[in-house]
Design a protein around this nucleic acid. Structure first.
Lengths: 250, 250
DNA sequence: CATATTAAAAATATAGATATTTTAATCTTT
DNA sequence: AAAGATTAAAATATCTATATTTTTAATATG
């Protein structure tokens, strides 16, 4: 990935990363929203450790901003549970734990399974077509790319594939809830991604799961699609658990 | 209710309303969080109209605060979709629409049904006992109270009852998602509450639905409990739709 | 030597000031 | 008189400064 290492806390100069679709109708170019995007990205990628104190002086220096837009950004991240605010003691990166990992992934698996089942019930032809399109694109990720690029491309297409599966559910609000859970999972997921994308075995297993899932969905087999979705989403949990122990994140 | 009328924009002097459990581990007494709670309450109760511009000068006066804590509060409300921010044009109350109403209630009904089914699968004896307790308390709301008090008590017990139903689901994250959807529904729900609580017919109908729901749940009939939950949550939608047309909120 | 106490330093929360942008009002020009 | 340009007023976004609170360090006390 193209991000600074944890020790490099020099200020950003590029544009902020594209914000998730959760923050829909807010295409403002102020510093507040940039700070939000930068901070979120940095927290997700582990530039800051879980529980780490977010010193205003440091943030000011790193992002070359005043206190006001930073506090606004942090307030939003508090709402998203990526940051916690303590009375007169400033902000900290939200802690991570095995318990939270299990909770978030359980919630994701249940919600996503429901969305898939709703989509089976409500989805139209365009929805089906998009699934096939994204499945194809994902299957065709060749390993001719560099390491970072490979990870990036696979992840993007993988997300696009899963988004296509649930797109037919017809509920804007449930998709937003899904995004929100995904954002909270991002830090845990980041650990898993690196482990998985470079393992041919793991990648092949995923490929098979995706194929089965597409089968069940196109056959409109709600029961089976739900079960497969839950299993598919829960598979990373033991892997991430091990990684967290190994890296002393718990 | 004990809130100011839409035209009364005098500053608050009391303590801010208790924040929802979504904002769990943040019991700080700063002005930022007070502003958040006050603003949220005022938006939900209709002190500000949907789409209304939130002038900084007005907010400063009304809440007797500086710009900084107000912007922090507004940033959080943007995350919760109760307020929208527009580039260099400040903040507005999020608009309301029939489409959003339908979307939010559909999402709530699906999510809540899933939570009830999960609770049936995972809930223990304490969960069952709490359901009976809250159902009893709700059924015993006597009409000996004043109008506002009656509405307040019934609403509180009604919420407690429904919370008890889903409490057994075992997923902290899904309960948070539920709270979030509930907060978004609050403005619409507020319209419905007044209409319902003072209609004996409506109240009796609700009572029956609740009794059926408890039956199905204690019988661990997941299918039926899910269906009843979806229906129960969707019933206010046509009523609110009519009210919105009547009051020109659309 | 551990535990209070106190003083100094650092950090936060918020108000106030300022530059920039938007909105409105006025004045041209066709 | 309508459309566009110009100017003035208002509002926003952000920085800087300050009061308050917390943290750290140093010193005294049992």
């Amino acid at each position: 990935m193209d991000h600074s290492s944890p020790t490099d806390k020099s200020p950003h100069k590029d544009k902020p990363p594209r914000q998730s679709s959760t923050q829909q109708g807010t295409p403002r170019q102020n510093m507040g929203i940039s700070a939000y995007a930068w901070l979120k990205q940095d927290i997700i990628c582990g530039v800051y450790q879980p529980g780490e104190k977010l010193l205003m002086s440091r943030l000011k220096e790193r992002y070359a901003l005043g206190i006001s837009p930073l506090r606004e950004a942090l307030s939003q991240l508090v709402s998203e549970h990526l940051v916690v605010a303590i009375s007169q003691r400033g902000y900290r990166v939200a802690p991570m734990s095995i318990e939270e990992l299990a909770d978030i992934y359980d919630a994701r698996s249940q919600l996503e399974a429901m969305l898939v089942q709703l989509a089976i019930e409500r989805g139209d032809d365009t929805w089906e077509a998009e699934i096939l399109a994204k499945a194809h694109t994902l299957a065709k990720v060749a390993e001719v790319h560099g390491a970072d690029e490979m990870l990036d491309i696979w992840d993007r297409r993988h997300q696009a594939f899963h988004s296509a599966l649930v797109a037919g559910c017809g509920s804007r609000q449930l998709l937003i809830a899904r995004e929100s859970l995904f954002d909270q999972a991002a830090r845990y997921r980041h650990l898993w991604l690196c482990q998985t994308v470079f393992s041919d075995r793991a990648l092949a297993a995923k490929r098979q799961e995706h194929a089965d899932l597409v089968d069940a969905i196109l056959a409109r087999d709600a029961k089976r699609a739900g079960d497969l979705t839950r299993d598919h989403i829960m598979t990373p949990v033991p892997i991430i658990t091990d990684l967290m122990h190994a890296r002393g994140l718990v």
